[in-house]
Design a protein around this nucleic acid. Structure first.
Lengths: 220, 220
DNA sequence: AAGAGTGTACTTGTATACAAGTATCCACTT
DNA sequence: AAGTGGATACTTGTATACAAGTACACTCTT
C-alpha cells in the first residue's frame, strides 16, 4: 500500500484512469483505445500504456485475448467473492490487532467508535468513521500484505458503491458490530475478534447482494 | 489467475525475469539496469519495462524513490506476514470448498491424499501432492480473487524455499493435517475445515521461521 | 585536508516512428 | 441472397531517439 507517488506522468495517468474507472465515469464494458485516450489525457502512448498495464494487473482493466483493453463488467458472482476474501483479510487483521494493540491503540479505537456513535444518524460521517476504524485496525495489525490485498479489494468494491445499503438500521448494526470488535480486541480474544470481523463482513456481503438482486445489476 | 499468455515479447520477458527472481538467480538486493538487461534478453527497453512494471506491482521487484529498480531483500518479518495471509486465504478456500464440493470432488481429494500418503517418504513427490491438494481445494472453492492472491503469496514464498523444512517428521505432520482437512470438507464442517487449514499453515510458518532463525537469513 | 561546487557519464522517463497483426467492409463468386 | 475473398483502415506491440534528472568524481577553494 505504501505508495511513493513519484511525480511521473505515468503515475498521474494511473491515478486519473483509476478515478474514472472507480467512479464509473468510464463505463463497465467500455473499451479503451490508446491513441484517443492518450490525446485526451495529453500524454503520449508510452506513459498511458504503463498506467494501463498497472491497472490490468489490479483487474481494474481487462485485457482481451486479442490485445484490446476494456473496463471490466460488473458481476454479481465477483462481488460475492470480493466480500469473502475481504472477510478473511479483515478477520486476520483483527486477530493480529489483538496481539499488537497497545493501550494507546485501544484508546484510538474507542475514540473512533465514539465519534462513529455520535454521527450514526449521518450516513456520510458514519461511513467515514467506519472506514477509519478498519484503517486503524489494519495499521495496528501491521501486516503489509494483508493491507495491500485489502486495498485492492476495496478498490474493486468501490465500483459497486451504488449498491451498498446505507439505511439507518444498517448503520446501527454496523456500529454494534464495531463495538463488539473493539471490545474483543481490547480483551485480546483473538478467536472472538476474528469471528466478529468475519461475520460482520459476511453480513455486509449478504446485504449488498440483496440490494443488487432487488435493484438489478446492469451487465451488458 | 487465469492468464492468457499471449505470445508477446513482454510476456516472455516477464516469465524469464520472474523465473530468475524466484530462483534467486537474480540476487536479493541486486539492482536492475534497463539497457544492460534489455541487451541481455535481446529485446528493447520497451517490453522489458513493461515486464518490470508488472513485477513491481507484484512486489517481485522494488522501485527506489529515485526511480531505480532492484530485487527486494529477503526479510524475516515479511515471511511471517506472508504465511499469515496465506493461512487466512487457505482457511477461506477450505470453508468455501465445504459448500461446493461434489462427490466427484471428494473422490479427487481422497485420491490425491492416497498418493501423498504412498509417497510420503520421498520429499519431492510428497511436496508435489501437497501442492496438488491445495490446488484442488482452491479449484473447488472457486473464488478467483482468493486464488489470485494465493498465487502471489506462493510466488513470494518461493524465494524463501531454501528455508523450508522437508524433514520426514514434518511431512508426516503435513499429511496428517491434510487428512483432517479433507475429512472436514467431506463432512461439510466449514468451521472445522477453516480452523484446520488455518492452523496447518500457521504451523508451517512457525517451522519456517524456526529454520530461518537457526540457519540465519542473509540480508544485506 | 576537508568541503563545496561543478561537470560528466549514465540513469530513467517520454515521445515518436515503424512493424505486425486484427477487424471491417465491400466486391465478387456461387 | 449468402458466403467467401481480399483490400483497407486501424489497432496494438516494439524499437529507437531524445529529454530530463541523478549520482559520482574531480577540482577548486578555504
Amino acid at each position: 500500500m505504501a505508495e511513493e507517488p513519484r511525480n511521473t506522468g505515468a503515475h498521474l495517468v494511473y491515478g486519473e484512469l483509476k478515478r474514472r474507472i472507480l467512479s464509473l465515469d468510464l463505463k463497465p464494458g467500455e473499451r479503451i483505445y490508446e491513441p484517443a485516450m492518450a490525446t485526451a489525457l495529453q500524454v503520449s502512448r508510452t506513459p498511458l500504456r504503463e498506467a494501463i498495464r498497472r491497472l490490468i494487473s489490479e483487474s481494474l482493466l481487462e485485457q482481451l485475448p486479442t490485445g484490446g483493453v476494456l473496463v471490466p463488467a460488473l458481476d454479481e458472482k465477483v462481488i460475492s467473492e470480493l466480500y469473502d476474501v475481504r472477510a478473511a483479510l479483515e478477520s486476520l487483521m483483527a486477530r493480529e490487532a489483538c496481539a499488537n494493540a497497545t493501550a494507546a491503540d485501544l484508546e484510538e479505537l474507542r475514540g473512533i467508535l465514539a465519534r462513529n456513535a455520535a454521527m450514526v444518524e449521518f450516513a456520510d460521517e458514519a461511513m467515514k468513521y467506519g472506514v477509519a476504524l478498519h484503517a486503524a485496525i489494519a495499521r495496528i495489525a501491521g501486516n503489509s500484505w494483508a493491507q495491500r490485498f485489502h486495498g485492492q479489494i476495496a478498490s474493486q468494491v468501490e465500483r459497486y458503491r451504488y449498491f451498498t445499503n446505507n439505511a439507518p438500521e444498517r448503520r446501527d448494526e454496523a456500529l454494534a458490530n464495531h463495538r463488539l470488535l473493539v471490545e474483543a480486541i481490547a480483551s485480546k480474544d483473538e478467536e472472538k475478534a476474528a469471528k466478529v470481523a468475519f461475520e460482520h463482513v459476511i453480513g455486509a456481503r449478504d446485504e449488498t447482494l440483496r440490494v443488487i438482486s432487488a435493484s438489478g445489476l446492469a451487465v451488458e
